[in-house]
């Protein structure tokens, strides 16, 4: 029984309290942790991609090894599926939190400014949301292309090297272009995302801020260069 509640003025806003785990900062923490998990995957994936420069046999052997990973402790392909489920959960959590936060941000400024120049924010910071959308659309295409093989001109699961080479053939320049756009979008996303994640996890010194920003830039550039080297090598005939 609450008989001593303060009388509310007519039209007064009754603040809505959320549970702690739905707070803006908690959602940002979720985004930071899931994001870092996905970045770790991206680097492992890139390392695997670069095996294409060793040769068809090595690349295909690596691809098959991924299916055996975890055996004999786990049955074949189980590790792969556990990893896929983990990644899917991370992506779902990241997107769900981003969507909730984007909607809250939109509601937080119902009337827009008539005059609004850019003061500070980097291009990377401003394009986090739409860049993320480009990346997720690409990931869907990428899975249908090089995982399931449905959208690949060859789609032979036994020979992933051949699939990659067919994918980035010069006459399929639009596939390469989409790949480049998506990889650059990932790079921009991480340039802001990596440092933002560090800050969300509690990075708090000014010197550390410079260090984390520099590290975010270097890691993003390495990732973009590593991923783009494969389609460029195929398109230019370096890998065939």
């Amino acid at each position: 029984m609450n008989t001593t509640a303060r009388p509310k003025a007519p039209g007064a806003k009754v603040p809505k309290r959320r549970s702690r785990t739905r707070s803006t900062v908690a959602l940002k923490l979720l985004m930071a942790v899931t994001g870092l998990l996905l970045v770790a995957f991206l680097f492992a994936h890139m390392a695997g991609n670069l095996k294409i420069f060793v040769g068809a046999e090595s690349f295909d052997h690596y691809a098959h090894w991924l299916r055996d990973l975890g055996t004999p402790l786990l049955p074949e392909t189980w590790f792969l599926w556990i990893q896929r489920l983990g990644l899917l959960a991370a992506v779902a959590g990241h997107i769900a939190a981003a969507t909730i936060l984007a909607r809250r941000a939109r509601r937080a400024r119902p009337v827009r400014y008539a005059h609004r120049p850019r003061v500070q924010g980097s291009y990377a910071a401003r394009t986090m949301r739409w860049g993320g959308v480009i990346v997720v659309l690409f990931v869907i295409y990428h899975i249908l292309d090089l995982t399931t093989g449905h959208l690949n001109p060859i789609g032979d699961k036994q020979h992933p090297y051949a699939n990659v080479v067919a994918d980035f053939a010069p006459e399929r320049w639009y596939v390469t272009l989409f790949y480049v756009v998506a990889v650059v979008a990932v790079g921009l996303h991480l340039r802001h995302g990596l440092w933002s994640a560090a800050r969300t996890l509690g990075q708090r010194t000014v010197a550390g801020e410079r260090l984390v920003k520099a590290a975010a830039l270097v890691l993003s550039v390495v990732l973009v260069a590593g991923y783009l080297s494969v389609p460029f090598a195929v398109t230019t005939g370096l890998v065939k």
């Binding site: 603040p15 809505k16 309290r17 959320r18 707070s23 803006t24 900062v25 959602l27 940002k28 936060l101 809250r104 941000a105 509601r107 937080a108 400024r109 500070q120 924010g121 980097s122 910071a125 401003r126 986090m128 802001h192 440092w195 933002s196 800050r199 969300t200």
Partner: peptide, 11 residues
């Protein structure tokens, strides 16, 4: 949050 402020994106 209850006042309707948005979240930080470290912009």
């Amino acid at each position: 949050d209850a006042e309707g402020f948005g979240g930080c994106t470290n912009a």
